[in-house]
Design a protein around this nucleic acid. Structure first.
Lengths: 215, 215
DNA sequence: TCTTTTTTTTTACTTTTTGTCAATAAAATC
DNA sequence: GATTTTATTGACAAAAAGTAAAAAAAAAGA
């Protein structure tokens, strides 16, 4: 089993979390093996694509047998870096930050929430998920001391512009950006954007198309 | 200017919201025209792609001049269906639902929030964004009377399975799904998923790659 | 051992992106 | 006011990327 996985296309990477989820569910149900055909039917994609995707990082399957779910699940998790136990903070303790802190799947997937920050003194010390909300002044100190890897940015556009450079400066590795702006960082900082309005607009487009064709 | 826009590739549609956002920002700054080259540099994509994309729904540009931003912005908005004024409800008034209700961009983009629902009696009547949280019993009645188009689903996986069929039954047109499961609906109901954990996992992958190559 | 299943690998096809260039509009020059 | 120059699109072509199908190979199970 090759562990090399250089040059995996972005589209494939984007599909990995979904595979991971489905495999996890099967595992929970006690299923131990599955063929690409079966999995494809379940997920609504072609068996060919599944096989092609899995082959990007070495053959996990066995002819005549299929894929060992536990093994495959673990491998994909490892490829995604879930085994690295990235330490995570949330910046912005508003409703969104709060919701994300409570999002149990994050911890389940190996992301350890170690701190929550906000600039509003009224929130100072309030406990969310066992963690006290800290003031922005302590951001750098805390991140350095606790070797924080990821910052989840749940704050408005304006605040973002102040915070991002500070996080970049102390060597943050990744940013999950929920604000409605594209942030600029050096190439060695990974960024993933979640633009909620964009999703709503895409939905709007789909509805508009449906309405056109349907009625 | 052709208004027909059949068969616009999905990849292009996914890019439209971002164009819309950038054009909106330029408009706000008072810029009235822009060339594909300039816009491309700003957005980090090739000028060629921009022209190709815009041409999917008819030529909006003018040789030697560029694109009229106001016109282009309005056209993209119309293609996305933002002018249809879709009526929207949020199901689930937890922190996530709350955050989404406060998300000002939704209203700005023409989505009118008309109702918020939750099953927790403790939240009944609590006012969010001027709207009282309603109990789940009134869901069908309310949606029919108010001709609700879109439901934003901010509830856990288990609750989803109960709610979706009810919404489908009363003819909901679109669902924005935040729960960590893929929902199944008839073809005439549009669905857009926002799987937060997936984004975090993709980020994790990127970090892992950076770490490998960088160090 | 032989058939069946199912992956891997290869090949073909489709979609998407990028690059080029003629056509055209605007601006500048004469 | 006519002519030249510059800017920039739209359309097409080429390249790249991604997806699906087909062929070949390996293992499982009878």
């Amino acid at each position: 089993m090759r562990s090399a996985n250089r040059d995996v296309p972005v589209v494939v990477v984007k599909r990995l979390p979904r595979y991971y989820r489905y495999l996890g569910e099967l595992l929970k149900k006690g299923v131990t093996r599955i063929s690409s055909g079966e999995l494809g039917k379940k997920m609504g994609v072609t068996a060919s694509q599944i096989r092609q995707d899995f082959n990007c990082f070495g053959g996990f399957g066995q002819q005549g047998y299929g894929y060992d779910i536990e093994n495959l699940h673990r491998e994909i998790g490892s490829i995604l870096g879930l085994t690295n136990g990235y330490k995570t903070i949330i910046v912005g303790a508003g409703h969104l930050g709060h919701a994300l802190a409570n999002h149990s799947n994050f911890a389940k997937r190996g992301f350890e929430l170690v701190g929550i920050f906000d600039k509003d003194p009224a929130l100072s010390g309030q406990v969310i998920q066992g963690l006290p909300v800290q003031m922005m002044e302590t951001l750098e100190d805390f991140c350095m001391k606790n070797r924080v890897d990821i910052a989840i940015l749940a704050l408005p556009k304006l605040a973002i512009e102040m915070v991002v450079p500070r996080l970049v400066k102390i060597g943050i590795k990744g940013l999950l950006n929920f604000s409605y702006t594209d942030i600029e960082v050096p190439a060695d900082v990974a960024v993933e954007n979640v633009h909620l309005s964009d999703s709503l607009m895409t939905l709007s487009y789909k509805i508009t198309q449906n309405t056109k064709n349907g009625d």
